[in-house]
Write a protein that binds this DNA or RNA. Structure first.
Lengths: 206, 206
DNA sequence: GTCTATAATGGGATAGAC
DNA sequence: GTCTATCCCATTATAGAC
C-alpha cells in the first residue's frame, strides 16, 4: 500500500493527482452506469469532471483502462467481505443486510447489471473480470454453505456449490427486475425466503 | 393475421419481401447477440444479409425498429407458453424442459442477457419491452404458483408472487453465469433444486 | 498536466438515380 | 427495391504547443 504516493506534496502546482483520478473514476462510474460501457463516452466523463477529453486520457490512456478501474473500485467499496470463520449464520445475515443497503445505491446496481450483461459480448474488455468475479463469489459462498452443511443445516438434495451459484444468480436476477420495477420487487425479502427454504433452523441444543 | 401478405405472388421481380425481412431479422439477432444493441451496427447486419446499409433501412427505417422486431420475434419462437389449466406440475416440468433446451441455443440466451442488461440504460428503446416482459412473466408464473398453493403444495412462508419473481430471477442469473462459464454451471439442475425446495411433493391420495 | 487541433474511423440516416 | 453518394455527427486516440 506504499507505492509512490509521494507524488503528492513534492512540488507545488499540482496538489492532488490522486484526487483527480478519483474524480474521474466517480464520473466514469456514473456514465457507465447510465449508458453502459459501449454507450458511455470519454467526452461525457470529461465534461462531468471538468476537463478535456484528452486530459482524461492522460490519466487513463485507453477507455478499457477506465472500465477496469471502475470495476476494481467496486471491489473496494461494494461488498465488504466479512471476516470468515464466525457464526455460519452471520454470512446469511450479511447478505440480507447488503441487499437492503443496495436499495440506497441504485447507481451501483445499475452499473453492475449493465456491465455484467455487456461482459458476455465479444471483445468486451471487462469479460475476464466479471467472469473471475463470479467464480470468486461462487468459491466464497460455497465455503460458507459447506460450513452450514457441516452443521446439518443445509437442506438435503442441495449441494453447497449449487446453493452458492443459485444465491448469487437469484440476487442478480432480482436486482434487474428491481431496477425496472422498484415498487414490484423486494430483493431482500425474496432472498430471505430463498434462504429460509434451503437453510434449516439450528438444531435445538444449548 | 391476414394483413397484406398479398405482396407476394403479385408481381414478378421481387418474390419474397417477407423472406427478406426474415433474413434481416436473423442477421440482426446474431449481431445484437454478439455485440449488444449499442455495439451492433446496421452495416454488420447488412453485410450478413448481403445488402447495403441503406437498403436495410428500407425495411426497418430506424435501428430501434430493428431492436423491437428482434425482441418480438423472441416471443413467437422462444417460450412456447404451454396451455393453461392442466396438471400444476406440468408448468414446472416445462420450465426445466425449456431450460435444458436453452443449452442448445446459446445465441438466444446471449441475446436475451445482453439486451436485458442494456434495457436499464437511459434512453434504451427496448426498456419498455423488457419491463413489460418481466411483468408479464411474473403474472403468468404467479398464477401457476397460486394453483400449486391451492393444492397445498407451496412451502409456507413463500407467496406465489415471490416464488414467481424468484424463479424468473434465478433463471436469468444462472444463465449469465452459464454463458461465462458453461462447464461450471448447470442451469436446469439448479432450477430443479430450487423448485424442489419451494414446492412440496403431492399429498398421498389416489 | 492541460490544452487545441486533428487524425482516423465509424456510426445512423437522407437524397436521389436507376 | 436497391443502390451510390453523401451528410453530419460522434467516437477514440495521437501530436504537439504551452
Amino acid at each position: 500500500m506504499v507505492e509512490d504516493a509521494g507524488a503528492r506534496s513534492r512540488r507545488g502546482p499540482y496538489a492532488g493527482a490522486a484526487e483527480r483520478r478519483a474524480a474521474i473514476l466517480e464520473a466514469a462510474f456514473d456514465v457507465f452506469a447510465q449508458h453502459g460501457y459501449t454507450g458511455g463516452s470519454l467526452q461525457k466523463i470529461a465534461d462531468i469532471v471538468g476537463m478535456s477529453q484528452t486530459s482524461l486520457l492522460h490519466y487513463y490512456p485507453k477507455k478499457s483502462d477506465l472500465l477496469l478501474a471502475v470495476l476494481r473500485r467496486r471491489d473496494a467499496v461494494g461488498d465488504a467481505t466479512l471476516p470468515a470463520g464466525g457464526e455460519p449464520t452471520a454470512f446469511l445475515d450479511s447478505v440480507l443486510q447488503q441487499a437492503r443497503a443496495n436499495e440506497t445505491v441504485q447507481g451501483l446496481i445499475e452499473l453492475y447489471t449493465v456491465l455484467a450483461g455487456e461482459a458476455v459480448t465479444t471483445g468486451n474488455p471487462g469479460r475476464e473480470y466479471v467472469l473471475q468475479r463470479f467464480a470468486g463469489l461462487r468459491v466464497e459462498y460455497t465455503h460458507r454453505f459447506e460450513e452450514l452443511a457441516a452443521c446439518g443445516r443445509l437442506r438435503s438434495g442441495i449441494s453447497p456449490d449449487a446453493a452458492a451459484a443459485s444465491l448469487i444468480a437469484l440476487w442478480d436476477g432480482l436486482q434487474i427486475q428491481w431496477l425496472l420495477a422498484p415498487d414490484a420487487i423486494d430483493v431482500a425479502s425474496n432472498l430471505e425466503s430463498f434462504i429460509d427454504a434451503i437453510v434449516l433452523p439450528p438444531t435445538r441444543k444449548g
